[in-house]
Amino acid sequence: EFILQPIHNLLMGDTKEQRILNHVLQHAEPGNAQSVLEAIDTYCEQKEWAMNVGDKKGKIVDAVIQEHQPSVLLELGAYCGYSAVRMARLLSPGARLITIEINPDCAAITQRMVDFAGV
């Protein structure tokens, strides 16, 4: 995967993360976080594997957030924003999600994903 990915990106003209974002923009409903998550899950199941938590493990994350109702949540590494959208949609009003992503391209994609999801 890591050796072939740059070749695939070159042939496709963009990165996997950008392709995931484009899929979301084309297939998800703006302002609907659940729709965004479903679009990412569908893309990763049908098109390309991606390094995200996914729906199965995501339900565990959901349960922890719902049980503890944090007022501040810190995410280290956002990748394409799946977990940020997943967690933010469950936060109480006034709660904050702080996401740190070292890769500026992934940070920009995450910001667009979060904005599109409306969270």
Rank of each mutant, 00 (worst) to 15 (best):
H23N: 00
D105E: 04
N32I: 08
G13V: 14
I102S: 10
I3S: 15
I102M: 06
I109N: 01
A117S: 15
H8Y: 13
Q18R: 10
G31A: 11
I7N: 14
V24E: 01
R19H: 10
P30S: 01
R112Q: 08
L4M: 15
F2V: 15
V119E: 13
Q26H: 07
E1V: 12
L97M: 03
N32H: 14
D105Y: 15
A117V: 00
G31V: 06
L11R: 14
L10P: 12
F116S: 02
Q111P: 01
T110A: 06
I109F: 05
H27Q: 01
E101V: 01
A117G: 02
L10M: 14
R19L: 02
P6H: 03
A108D: 01
L11H: 13
A108P: 03
T15P: 07
H23Q: 01
E29V: 11
Q26E: 08
Q18E: 15
C106R: 02
A108V: 00
L21R: 11
H8P: 14
H23Y: 00
L25P: 13
D105V: 02
A28E: 10
S35N: 11
R112P: 04
A33V: 10
N22T: 05
D115V: 00
P104R: 05
M113R: 06
C106Y: 06
T15S: 05
Q5H: 07
I98N: 08
V114G: 09
T110N: 03
I3N: 10
E17Q: 06
H8N: 12
Q18P: 13
I102N: 07
K16N: 10
P104H: 06
R19C: 04
T110I: 04
I100S: 08
I20N: 15
M113L: 05
D105G: 08
P30A: 12
E29D: 06
G118C: 08
L21M: 11
T110P: 07
T99I: 02
E101D: 03
Q34L: 13
N103H: 01
I20F: 11
I100L: 10
N9I: 12
I102L: 04
I100F: 07
L97Q: 05
I7V: 03
K16T: 12
P30H: 10
A107V: 00
D105A: 00
R112G: 05
P6L: 06
I7T: 01
P6R: 11
M113T: 01
F2I: 13
E17G: 15
C106G: 06
M113I: 02
N22Y: 03
P6S: 08
E29A: 14
L11I: 13
H27N: 05
H8L: 14
D14Y: 13
L10R: 12
V114A: 04
N103T: 03
G31R: 04
L97P: 03
N9H: 13
E17V: 09
E101K: 00
I20T: 06
Q111R: 01
E29Q: 09
N32K: 13
G13C: 12
H23R: 00
M12L: 10
S35R: 11
P6T: 09
A28P: 03
N9T: 12
I98T: 09
I100T: 07
P6A: 06
I102T: 02
A107P: 02
Q111L: 04
Q26K: 13
T15I: 14
H23P: 00
Q34H: 12
Q5L: 04
F116Y: 08
A28V: 07
L4P: 08
I7M: 13
M12K: 05
I3F: 11
G13D: 01
L21V: 14
R112L: 05
E17D: 07
A107T: 01
D14H: 13
D115Y: 14
D115A: 02
D14N: 06
Q26L: 07
T110S: 04
N103Y: 00
C106S: 03
S35C: 07
Q111H: 02
F116L: 08
V119L: 09
Q111E: 04
A117T: 04
F2Y: 15
L4V: 13
